[in-house]
Simulated scan of single mutants.
Amino acid sequence: MIVDLPDEAATARLGAALADTLGPGEAVCLSGPLGAGKSTLARAMVRALTTPDEEVPSPTFTLVQFYEGERLNVAHFDLYRLSSPDEAYEIGLDEALEDGAAIIEWPERLAGRLPGDRLDIEISLASGGEARQARIAAHGALKSRVGRGRPFEF
């Protein structure tokens, strides 16, 4: 499924809508070039699961941030600086999925060890301006809840 995102507000609305689909043990894997909007989408998801004014810093240097939500806990991982897939599990990916959901930026660093119940979202830059495009693929349990060839409602 492909979703056009004309501006940052549309990216945030998509993040909030995706957060509503997540359950325990599920992940959202965000890929795309630097500056594509992965952190914007992740921030919107965290805020939808916690509070609208939740401070959501990028975990680029801390690698992971944990948040407690009323409905679902969520962990936000930035794997850009990892050199081995094992490192993601050393910093708590398994535990995050046991306790709630995970948002994973740079999932390609997991080299084939992605969670089975996940959304893969590849964000690409559109030509000119701040427009983006998100390509969404659902796997495992999320496959029956997201997409099914219909446009995403947000």
Rank of each mutant, 00 (worst) to 15 (best):
M1Q: 04
M1C: 02
I2H: 06
D4H: 12
D4V: 10
P6W: 00
P6G: 01
D7T: 07
E8D: 07
A9F: 01
A10N: 00
T11R: 01
A12F: 03
G15P: 05
A16D: 07
A16R: 15
A17N: 04
A17I: 10
L18Q: 04
A19K: 12
D20S: 14
T21K: 15
T21D: 07
L22T: 00
G23N: 04
P24E: 02
G25S: 08
G25L: 08
V28M: 02
C29G: 02
L30Y: 11
G32N: 10
L34P: 15
G37K: 02
G37Q: 03
K38Y: 10
K38G: 10
K38A: 09
K38F: 10
K38E: 10
K38Q: 10
S39C: 03
S39G: 04
S39M: 03
S39E: 06
A42M: 06
A42R: 05
M45K: 01
V46T: 04
L49F: 00
T50S: 05
T50W: 07
D53G: 04
D53T: 15
E54Y: 03
E55T: 12
V56G: 01
P57L: 02
F61M: 04
F61K: 06
F61P: 14
L63E: 08
Y67I: 03
Y67W: 08
E68R: 15
G69R: 07
E70W: 12
E70P: 13
N73D: 14
V74N: 00
A75R: 00
H76D: 02
H76W: 06
F77Q: 04
F77G: 02
F77V: 08
D78E: 08
D78Q: 07
L79C: 05
L79T: 03
Y80G: 02
R81W: 09
R81Y: 08
L82M: 15
L82T: 10
S83K: 14
S83V: 10
S83L: 12
S84Q: 15
E87F: 06
E87L: 05
E87R: 06
Y89A: 04
I91M: 05
I91Y: 00
I91E: 01
G92P: 11
G92H: 07
L93Q: 02
L93P: 00
L93C: 05
L93W: 00
D94E: 15
D94L: 10
E95T: 08
A96L: 05
A96H: 05
L97K: 08
E98Y: 05
D99W: 09
D99L: 15
D99I: 05
G100A: 05
A101T: 13
I103E: 03
E105C: 03
L110Y: 09
L110S: 03
A111D: 13
G112L: 11
G112W: 13
G112F: 14
R113V: 06
P115V: 06
G116C: 11
L119N: 04
D120M: 13
I121P: 09
I123P: 12
I123V: 12
S124I: 15
A126I: 09
A126M: 13
S127T: 13
S127I: 13
G129H: 04
E130V: 14
E130S: 14
A131I: 02
A131N: 04
R132M: 07
R132P: 06
R132Q: 10
A137V: 15
H139L: 12
G140I: 04
L142S: 01
L142T: 00
R145N: 03
R145S: 11
V146T: 02
G147S: 11
G147F: 12
G147Y: 11
G147L: 14
R150I: 13
E153T: 14
